[in-house]
Simulated assay, not measured.
Amino acid sequence: MTAFFAAEPEEARALKEALGAVEALEAPFPLHRGKGVLVAETGVGKVAAASAVAHVLTRFAPRESFFLGVAGGLDPSFRAMDLLLAERAVQWDVDLTPFGREPGETAFGVRFFPSDPHLLARAEGVAQVLGFPFRRGVVATGDRFLADREEARRLARLHGAQAVEMEGAAALMVAWRFRHPMALVRVITDGAGEEAVSDFQVFLKEASRRLGYLAQALLAY
């Protein structure tokens, strides 16, 4: 079984429709099952994402997982609807530097949590087949919607990140602890600046539709 995770209701709805996940399951969050697939709507933020991933991995033991959703671009060369295939993700709002840690480094001694390379290669192949513009890169995750251009530039420099969002690094950290293969893929909807809120709303529906096509192809690939 393959599990798909998404934070926003719009994203999860698109995944459910694309994958035929119509059977509602009992869970602390919206969870639906289809043939060989689970779709979990985690809710927004790191705690919501981490708890949902841990629940699904513990209860259902899927073979593999993908966390799909939208993100704000930190790299100005990104265009709306481009895909970022996250090779790794960092929690930008974790700060243990008074204890000699690097910015974003967790108490586990890990700063960047990786996507599974085989699943990421599969996502890359699917993106090529679908004709979706994409690149590989780094995602910065934090529990705050970033709408400040200067802070966005600082995070890009500090972590080498190309996009920012609110769940990915937490989800990958849980997968890392469970030794479970997961890949993180994001669609860029905004530039993480002052216009980010309006851009996010404008592009969310179209981005979610793109994620549905991607999930459908990943399941068949």
Rank of each mutant, 00 (worst) to 15 (best):
V22E: 15
D75E: 08
E151R: 15
P114A: 14
D95V: 02
A21D: 00
L31W: 06
T106Y: 02
R111Y: 13
A107G: 13
T141P: 00
L96Q: 07
G20S: 12
V44D: 06
L155Q: 05
V139D: 04
A80D: 02
L68H: 05
G69M: 10
T42K: 11
W92L: 11
A21V: 01
L68G: 03
T106H: 12
V37K: 04
G104F: 05
V47R: 12
G125K: 08
G36C: 08
G137K: 13
S77T: 09
V53R: 03
V94D: 02
L83H: 04
L120V: 00
D75S: 06
P133S: 10
E102N: 13
E150D: 09
S115Y: 08
D143E: 03
L74I: 05
A89Y: 06
A24E: 12
R122E: 01
R154P: 07
G36L: 03
G45E: 00
T106R: 07
E102R: 15
D148K: 14
D148A: 14
A48P: 00
G69Y: 08
V37L: 05
P76A: 14
T97H: 08
L84C: 00
E64Q: 14
E124R: 14
R33G: 00
L119G: 12
A12W: 05
A48H: 13
L19S: 00
Q91R: 15
E23G: 05
F145V: 02
L120T: 01
P30R: 14
H32C: 09
F134A: 04
G43T: 06
R63H: 13
V47K: 07
V94G: 10
H55V: 09
V90Y: 08
A127L: 06
G72N: 12
